[in-house]
Every structure is written in structure tokens, then in C-alpha cells.
Design a protein around this nucleic acid. Structure first.
Length: 910
DNA sequence: GAGCACTGC
């Protein structure tokens, strides 16, 4: 065979002599495609079971009679023993929400004595000094002037849209107007208001503020309810501020919100999935509950859209009040700083597109002589549209030297890298000595987000500079900001149905974002905002960011819809304000069917029913159910909570290397980010008295760990309520018989995360690939990224996001058997003389015929058992009867495999 | 030799 050598000197096959020019290229393309195909088809390894082991398994299989317990009967579930589970499950799959609403009418509460008492209490408060002092402040709010108009509209119609900008006071006042009106009319007992907020902190903060205005403590007429935390107000004559998710969960049991008189949905312009979802549910509810009042509150910009959605519901607009903020654009910044942009090589086409866009604007500037020639030349350079940290630094220096007001400066950037670089540039520049400037990088991963200092007034003679992501747009509010520098970009994850993956990319902000950023400069006095984009660019900005429902995977949303008994998904999605892409819907339905959460005709399975009830992504739900069955819950709860909420590690600027080192130390050589999360929580929970030192040492967020610990408890309560565990303590012995078995825990992680499997072609080497040979990279934050040698070629992961390339953010190295036992679509086949098995066609393993048969039987037996257990929830009783024998065999195989392969790995290393 | 928007049950 003819060879030639490639650039690296390796032998390379020559193309046939008759091929010329382009054909040679095509020949090589074909070759590489074939090579990829070959790799795709290559088995990942061999599965070996000794004859003695097989004998032992066969004995267990012969001695148990589990298959008699369960026969599938075409969806009627007659075989399922009568139980609470069966009753609830059948109701959810067979009844529609409309039928449920009919059965659940509201009972108006009229308690004259209570109303009288509430009235007396309210009247006596009118002389309260503190109350009156607060009232004076309230009366200055723009919304206060519109009290009568708001009450009139709310009285006259079932649905009202109230719009107003920040500072108008709608969030704190509207609920109080309604409540006080009821009380004054001696109808206080008939009023029970629920008011939603999109974020946890705002629910608490608003409740505290309102209680203060009423000169009361939380728990009287005002309370809050967020996940894992609540201060309920009195039952009647009250307002409860809660997160949107809480209301959605309430509706699972009581879709008509039968005890509520008023539902206020605040900040609906943010268009998060949950509030969009509730908006659609309201349409169904209002026809059955004519007495329920709905008040929708949004920013002014898109309030019309909501009014139209409800058949032109009446709309009240409240003028806002903030201090004026002067706006400047890139033109002004270039003028001020005299900055000169570099010239970078870009394609001719991009130059032309840019020039078509900017030329009319620059010509106009030239004609009006608003700016000098320099500005016009610079604007014509396409480079001026990229984020330029040097220019931002020069602007910052200019502000500090020339502007008289010494208020705080807030800079919006897109991500960790930029924030970190700009912080370094600021301290290296020499213009910002630490005794005059307090510089705070602000990012969800940075420890500064938990520092009080950011909110406080700086010491005399010092000035705050905050460099933040969009976290400072809504989540974190710093009052004394006077200058805002807005880079004009924002990072957003979009789900891409074509590649079935999330894409994280910077894009231009929407006008709504830009307004919000600008508004951050005018909270206490007049401010200045610098937008780092031209007036021409502003003309092209979208009004709003894409609503979340168009950017997300839809598995969770579909499960929620199912458990709310909304029937077929597509008709319901069509009723939403914006309907998601059908392709994304299909992908989500397919995955739910593969997880065995939905049947082929889109009905919830018993497993799906449990997954829908659990407050987490379905993969994590499956994981904790398996953790309960295999009695290794505590570690699995830690993993599930961390993956579903957030990993507790922080990343201080400039400490990247050290964080990596400490993570490796904590992971003790186990190649799994998931087990690292478990170690973090284990350490935190073990150091009851000096957890702060532990957290400090390993760069862990105390706040995040506490919340994760609470989530574990909550998950346990759900499992207990579902009757999968005997009590609700995550640490209880019955639930943790096997919690020391790391191989088992990794196998259960695999059971939850499957089909998110990645493989490396060469044992122990990066790069890694999807089974369909898409190239992946381990994210540098993963402990596996540092790993020089893998002792297996299979790993499972939860998050895969495309940014510069496809990054796997968290991973665990696992061996073959967990995939073989817990993966779907098991096949046995021959390749030549070799007996093979495959999972989902794309993960192949060699093995003998008898091994394949015995594994298949074990798998079938386990799946029977699983299906039985899921539809007959009850704690597993170990060692007493047949049911645990199959589990024990599987566990033993999984554990042995790891030990054998570890030895092989050592030999390979030598 | 790498790099990580933000919420929520």
C-alpha cells in the first residue's frame, strides 16, 4: 500500500493516483469520516465475569420470584395495590384540570366578628406614632396618589394590569391598598392576598418593608413564603409575599387557589418560565372562580402585551420616580478620552456589513458637526464594537479626575474573565491607590457577593468601584451608585434544538437591560450612565430579552404541566404568551420517554409522577429515588442538591490555581466532581463548630452549603411523604447502609445522569467525545480537567454548555457496569465471531454469550423490581426477603468491577 | 494550557 508522510512525520495513506485537486481533499474528508465511524463503532471494553460469579448470580436469580409480583397491564394499573399513591396517581393521569376546578370551588370566608376585630385594630393604629411616620413617607410615593383609581379598577374588573417604573412604589403599596380597603369596609376576613416575586431575596425584603410600613412584625398581617423558609401571616386579612415557584407548587394541590381572594403577580415583564406558566393557568381558573381578583404588575414598556393577552384587561399606569440620569454613548466616550482602537483583521464581508450599518450614522454626525473628526474615524473601525477594557479603564480614570461627585461607580461587564482582567488592570494602573479606592469584583462565583462592605458607605475620602455582571441589574442593589458604565453586552444561555445543547454567548443587551442598568445610577441622587455602544447600535437593540421559555430545555416544564393535569402538551403550549419551538418540545418529550417518565402517548408513568412532584430536575429525582432504593441517600442527596442548585465552590479573583489545588486535595484522588460536592457537604456537616475554617480553607460558600443542607432535608421530606424512606433524616442509618460504597454511589449518579455519557477513545486520555463523536472538553473547574490519566474511558456528566467549545462542567469517571445496568436499550448481537452487547446502540462492550445472557436477566429482574417499587412505594427491607437479593448482586458486581479495573490501570501505568 | 450569565420549587 502506498504511503506518504504528513507534517508530523507519520505515515499517511496516499490518495489513488487518478484523483486531482479538489478530489484529493474530498478523498481525505471521506477517509476521516470513515475513521470516525470506525471509532464510533469500537467497543469501549470487555465485561468479564468468572464462572463462579455467574453460578452465584444464577443461584440468586433462581431463588427469587420477583417477576411474579408484577405484570404490566396496559396502563390501567389494576395490579397496583390500593394505596394513597395509587389513588393520587390515577387521579392525576385520568382527571383534567377543568374537572378538578369544578370539584374545588372556593368557599368565601365571612367572619363578621373577625372583620370587626381587624377593623378595631386598624383604627387604633391610626394614632400610632411609628405608623404615622411611615405613612408620611408612603404618601410621597407616586402610587399613593393613584390609590383610589387603583382600587376602583380592581373592584370593577377581575383582571387588572398595573404598570410603573422603579420607584413608583407599586410593589409595596398595591397589596396594602387592597387589604386596608377591605378592613375599612369591615370585610377584612374576606381578604387574603398572595403576591409573587421572581426572587427569594425580594420576597423577604418586600415583606419586611411592608410590615415596617404597617408598624407591625412579620407574621401579623404580612408574611413571606419562599422555598425552605417561611413566616406566614395570619390566615385572613393578610398579605403573603412569595416566590412564583411556591404558588405553582400550591396549584398542584389546589389549582383554583381556593383560599385566596387576590393574586398579585409582580415583575411579570421579566418573563420567567414560572410567571408565564401561571399567566396561562389563570385563563383556566378565572372562568371557574369569578370572585378571584388578579392583579398583574409589570414595567411600562410591555404592559400592553399582558392586557391584550387577557382580552384587553384594564390597565393603570403609575408614573415612576427616580433621579434623572444623564446618558452618554460611545461617541461621547471616544470624544472624552481620545481613544484610538486597534485594527484587527476581519473578513471583507464583515467590514462591509459593519460599514453599511455605521456609515449613515457617522455621516449624520459629520453633517451636524456634533463630534470631531477623530470620533468619526474611530466609529468607522468595527473594532469599536467589541468590549474594550483599556477604553473602560481610560474612561474610569477620566471620571475620577474630572467629575466632581465622588459617588460609587458601577461597571457592567459580561463574565468572570473580563471582571477579573479589569480588576487587575485597575490595580496595576497606579491611578487607583488602595487607600483611596475600594474595588469590588462582583460575580456569582466570587466571595464578594456575600460581603456587606459592598452595600455600605465607604470610609471618608474613599470611593467604591464595583465591577459586576448582570447580577447587579436586579439581584444586588447598591444604593449609592452615581456612575454606571454599561459595556452593552450580556451573556445568555440559549438552548439550541439543532445541536441539542445549551449555548452560552455574549450578545447585545436589550433596551430593557440598558434601562435597568442606567437606573442603577439614579437611586439616591442624579447620576450619569455611559453606554459603550453608539447611538446607531442603540437603534437596533431589541426591546426585551427573549422570554425564558424560548431559551430553555423543557423537561421540567412539561412534567409540571403534566402534574397540573393540563393534558396534551402542545395545546397548552399554544396558550402561553409565547409558545416554545416545536423541535425543543419534541426533544424534551423524547428524553422524558427515555427516562421512562412518560408513556408513548404522553401520559405520566408512575416514575414520571414522582419525578414531577419532586422539586428538582427529573434526572436528580431519578438519582435520589435510586439512592433511596440502594440505601446510600446522604451522599446522593448532596450530589443531587449541588447539581440542581449550584456547586458550593467559590472562585476569588487571582486564586484560580489555589482553588484547583484545594479541590484536588478535598477530592482525595477520586475522579469525580460529584463526589467532591459530597465531600464538601460532608466536611461542612462534620465541622459543626468550626465550619467557617473548613469553608475558608476550601473556598466554599457557607451560604450555599447551608442552603444545600436545607435542600437535602427537603428532598428527604418528600421521599418520606412518598413513603420511600422510613423517616426524614438524611443521616438515618436505614437510608445509609451503603453510603460508604463509592463505586455504588458513582453508579447511582450514572443512573441519574444517563444518557449524559462521554467517552475517551484512548483509555485514559483526553479529549473526550460524545458517543456520536462530538468533541467535548472538560471544563477547567472540573477536578478531572487536571487529571493526567483516567482509569476508565467512560464518564457521566450533567451540564454540557457550548461557549468557545463544548465544555462538560461536572463529571464522574465510571466503569462499564453502571452504564450496562442503568442505561437504556440493551442489545445483544454478534460482530463477526464476537458476542457483543450495546446500550442505546452507541456504547458497545465485548463479552461472552453466557455473561451477556446473565447480565440481561439481572437487568430485567432489576427493572421489574424498580417498576414494582415505584408503583408500590415503601421502604426497602434489607436481608429479610427476596427483594434485596438482586440489589445486593448488582451492588457486588459494580463494586468488584472497580477493584479489578483499578489493578489493570496500575499495570498500564508501569 | 485551558475558563465559568442569572434565577427558582
Amino acid at each position: 500500500m502506498p504511503f506518504k508522510r504528513d507534517r508530523k512525520g507519520n505515515k499517511k495513506e496516499k490518495p489513488p493516483a487518478h484523483l486531482k485537486g479538489k478530489q484529493i481533499g474530498l478523498y481525505y474528508a471521506q477517509k476521516s469520516k470513515q475513521k470516525k465511524e470506525l471509532q464510533r463503532n469500537r467497543p469501549l471494553g470487555a465485561i468479564l465475569l468468572s464462572a463462579a460469579k455467574k453460578d452465584q448470580i444464577q443461584k440468586v436469580l433462581n431463588s427469587t420470584s420477583l417477576q411474579n409480583l408484577f405484570t404490566v397491564d396496559g396502563g390501567s394499573y389494576d395490579h397496583v395495590a390500593d394505596s394513597i399513591f395509587k389513588r393520587d396517581f390515577l387521579r392525576v393521569i385520568n382527571e383534567t384540570i377543568d374537572e378538578k376546578l369544578m370539584k374545588n370551588p372556593s368557599i368565601p370566608v365571612q367572619d363578621e366578628r373577625l372583620s370587626e376585630r381587624l377593623y378595631e385594630e386598624y383604627m387604633s393604629k391610626q394614632d400610632n406614632v411609628k405608623y404615622n411616620k411611615m405613612n408620611k413617607k408612603r404618601k410621597k410615593l407616586p402610587s399613593y396618589n393613584m390609590k383610589d383609581e387603583i382600587l376602583k379598577v380592581v373592584n370593577e374588573s377581575q383582571i387588572v394590569v398595573i404598570s410603573g417604573e422603579t420607584g413608583c412604589g407599586k410593589t409595596t403599596q398595591v397589596a396594602q391598598f387592597i387589604l386596608d380597603d377591605f378592613i375599612e369596609k369591615k370585610k377584612g376576613s374576606e381578604c387574603k392576598i398572595l403576591c409573587t416575586q421572581p426572587r427569594r431575596i425580594s420576597a423577604i425584603a418586600v415583606a419586611q418593608r411592608v410590615a415596617e410600613e404597617r408598624a407591625e412584625n412579620l407574621g401579623d398581617s404580612v408574611g413571606y413564603h419562599i422555598r425552605l423558609e417561611r413566616r406566614s401571616p395570619r390566615d385572613r386579612g393578610s398579605v403573603c409575599f412569595c416566590t412564583t415557584g411556591i404558588v405553582l407548587k400550591m396549584m398542584e394541590n389546589d389549582p383554583s387557589l381556593s383560599t385566596i381572594s387576590h393574586l398579585i403577580l409582580d415583575e411579570i415583564h421579566e418573563r420567567d418560565v414560572m410567571s408565564d406558566f401561571i399567566l396561562a393557568l389563570i385563563k383556566k381558573i378565572i372562568t371557574k372562580r369569578k370572585d378571584l381578583k388578579i392583579i398583574l404588575m409589570s414595567a411600562t414598556l410591555n404592559s400592553e402585551k399582558f392586557s391584550k393577552y387577557y382580552n384587553n384587561a384594564p390597565h393603570v399606569n403609575i408614573p415612576g420616580f427616580t433621579f434623572p440620569v444623564t446618558e452618554f454613548y460611545l461617541e461621547d466616550v471616544i470624544f472624552r478620552t481620545g481613544y484610538i482602537f486597534d485594527h484587527k483583521k476581519i473578513s471583507r464581508e464583515k467590514i462591509r456589513t459593519y460599514s453599511d450599518f455605521i456609515e449613515p450614522h457617522v455621516r449624520q454626525l459629520e453633517a451636524t458637526k456634533q463630534y470631531n473628526r477623530h470620533v468619526c474615524i474611530q466609529l468607522r473601525n468595527p473594532e469599536c464594537e467589541n468590549i474594550n477594557l483599556k477604553l473602560i479603564l481610560e474612561l474610569l480614570i477620566d471620571i475620577c479626575q474630572k467629575e466632581k461627585d465622588k459617588g460609587a461607580i458601577l461597571i457592567f461587564l459580561t463574565g468572570f474573565q473580563d471582571i477579573s482582567s479589569l480588576s487587575k488592570m485597575i490595580s496595576d494602573s497606579g491611578y487607583f491607590p488602595p487607600y483611596q479606592y475600594l474595588v469590588f469584583p462582583l460575580h456569582s462565583l466570587m466571595p464578594t457577593v456575600e460581603q456587606k462592605q459592598i452595600f455600605e458607605e465607604p470610609p471618608h475620602g474613599m470611593r467604591k468601584i464595583i465591577i459586576a455582571t448582570n447580577i447587579a441589574e436586579t439581584s444586588i442593589t447598591i444604593d449609592d451608585v452615581v456612575y454606571v458604565i454599561d459595556c452593552g453586552k450580556i451573556k445568555v444561555t440559549n438552548f439550541d434544538a439543532a445541536t441539542n445543547s445549551d449555548i452560552l454567548a455574549p450578545q447585545w443587551v436589550s433596551l430593557a437591560n440598558a434601562n435597568q442598568r442606567r437606573g442603577r445610577a439614579g437611586r439616591v441622587k442624579p447620576g450619569i450612565c455611559f453606554h459603550m455602544y453608539s447611538k446607531a447600535r442603540e437603534m437596533l437593540l431589541e426591546q426585551f430579552q427573549l422570554p425564558e421559555i424560548l431559551r430553555k430545555r423543557l423537561e421540567d416544564v412539561i412534567l409540571t404541566a403534566k402534574v397540573l393535569q393540563l393534558g396534551d402538551i402542545e395545546p397548552f403550549f399554544r396558550e402561553l404568551i409565547d409558545s416554545p419551538d416545536p423541535e425543543t418540545v419534541t426533544l424534551a418529550l423524547d428524553l422524558l420517554k427515555r427516562l421512562n417518565a412518560l408513556t408513548d402517548d404522553e401520559k405520566l408513568t408512575p416514575l414520571g409522577y414522582h419525578l414531577a412532584k419532586l422539586p428538582m430536575a427529573p434526572q436528580m429525582g431519578k438519582m435520589i429515588l435510586f439512592g433511596a432504593i440502594f440505601s446510600c441517600l446522604d451522599p446522593i442527596l448532596s450530589v443531587a442538591a449541588s447539581l440542581d442548585f449550584k456547586d458550593p465552590f467559590q472562585l476569588p479573583v487571582g486564586k484560580e490555581k489555589e482553588v484547583t489545588r484545594m479541590k484536588l486535595e478535598l477530592s482525595r484522588g477520586i475522579k469525580s466532581d460529584h463526589l467532591l460536592f459530597h465531600e464538601a457537604l460532608k466536611g461542612f456537616e462534620a465541622h459543626a463548630y468550626d465550619y467557617r475554617n473548613f469553608c475558608w480553607k476550601y473556598f466554599l460558600s457557607v451560604h450555599a452549603l447551608k442552603q444545600l443542607q436545607d435542600m437535602k432535608k427537603q428532598f428527604m421530606e418528600y421521599l418520606h411523604e412518598m413513603n420511600f424512606v422510613p423517616d426524614s433524616n438524611p443521616k438515618s442509618l436505614e437510608c445509609n447502609r451503603n453510603s460508604h460504597n463509592m463505586s455504588l454511589i458513582k453508579a447511582i449518579i450514572c443512573a441519574g445522569l444517563y444518557p449524559n455519557v462521554a467517552i475517551s477513545k484512548v483509555l485514559g486520555r483526553a479529549p473526550i467525545w460524545t458517543p456520536n463523536m462530538q468533541k467535548l472538553q472538560l471544563h477547567p473547574k472540573s477536578v478531572l480537567a487536571e487529571c493526567k490519566y483516567f482509569d476508565s474511558n467512560i464518564l457521566v456528566y450533567y451540564r454540557k454548555i457550548y461557549s468557545n467549545s463544548y465544555f462538560v462542567h461536572d463529571a464522574s469517571l465510571i466503569h462499564a457496569l453502571p452504564v450496562v445496568f442503568f442505561g437504556d436499550k440493551f442489545h445483544r448481537f454478534y460482530e463477526g465471531d464476537n458476542n457483543m452487547i450495546s446500550i442505546n446502540q452507541n456504547l458497545k462492550f465485548k463479552c461472552t454469550e453466557s455473561t451477556a445472557l446473565i447480565i440481561k436477566e439481572l437487568r430485567d429482574r432489576f427493572n421489574w423490581f424498580l417498576e414494582y417499587k415505584i408503583s408500590h412505594p415503601g421502604p426497602i427491607i434489607w436481608g429479610k426477603n427476596d427483594e434485596t437479593k438482586v440489589l445486593e448482586v448488582i451492588m457486588e458486581l459494580i463494586t468488584c468491577e472497580e477493584m479489578v479495573l483499578d489493578d489493570n490501570a496500575f499495570e498500564d501505568c508501569d
